[in-house]
Amino acid sequence: MADPHAPLVVVMGVSGSGKSTVGGLLAERLGVPYAEADDFHPPANIAKMAAGHPLDDTDRAPWLDAITDWITDRHGEGGVVSCSALRRRYRDRLRAAAPALFFVHLDGSEELIAARLTARMSHFMPPGLLRSQFDALEPLGPDEAGAVVAIDGGPQQLAERAYAALPR
């Protein structure tokens, strides 16, 4: 039976910030479904990023639509999805599907995240695109439901910080 109070959460941030790991742990803690936003990319987007080219808004449109559909399908059940959600207009688009959507922004220095990306194996996102993600990042506004979580620490610790930041 669905919990009408289960939250809908987007774990956001630049590539390498820990969205997938923290998102999965947070969903487990909440007992809700988890979705990895990378799985919603059409093959052309993955090929473009793998070739070292950043996505533009046209590339992101079908991806954001697919994530929005997933969020809409979770209404009344709750869920956690990882999604870079770098720009305010992307978050607004997602929030249109679920006005109570809560964003957890995993935040850290470019140096720390670059080191993580360099160590990461078998992911299509090359470290060379990190700067473009930081350039695109628009932090959460004071009128957006969400919290910033520092990424210093281990995955379990970050998931606990994210959980503690959720509205009750």
Rank of each mutant, 00 (worst) to 15 (best):
G108E: 06
V104H: 14
L94F: 08
F124E: 03
M125E: 04
A114G: 09
R93W: 08
R131G: 04
E111D: 14
R95G: 00
A147E: 13
R116W: 03
V149D: 11
L137W: 11
M121C: 11
S109M: 06
E110T: 02
S132T: 11
L140G: 14
I151M: 10
P127K: 06
F134K: 06
G128M: 09
A115I: 00
P142E: 09
A136N: 11
A97Y: 00
A147G: 13
R89K: 14
G146D: 14
T118W: 01
R131Q: 15
A136H: 06
P99R: 02
R131T: 09
R89I: 07
P126T: 05
F102Y: 12
E138K: 10
P126W: 03
R93P: 10
A98I: 00
M121S: 15
R116Y: 03
T118R: 14
F103H: 08
A96F: 00
L101M: 02
D135R: 12
A147C: 14
L117P: 04
L130G: 01
L130D: 02
F134G: 01
R91F: 10
R93T: 15
E138F: 07
E138W: 07
A119R: 15
A145H: 11
E138R: 10
R131M: 06
A150R: 13
R89F: 04
L94N: 10
Q133N: 01
G108N: 08
A97H: 00
A100S: 10
Q133H: 02
R91I: 12
R91W: 12
P127Y: 05
A119I: 05
R95S: 04
L106S: 07
I151A: 07
S132Y: 05
I151Q: 09
G141W: 03
L130F: 01
D92Y: 01
A97I: 00
G146W: 12
R93L: 13
G146I: 13
D135T: 14
R91N: 14
P126C: 05
F102M: 06
V104T: 14
L117I: 04
L106Q: 07
D107C: 08
F102S: 08
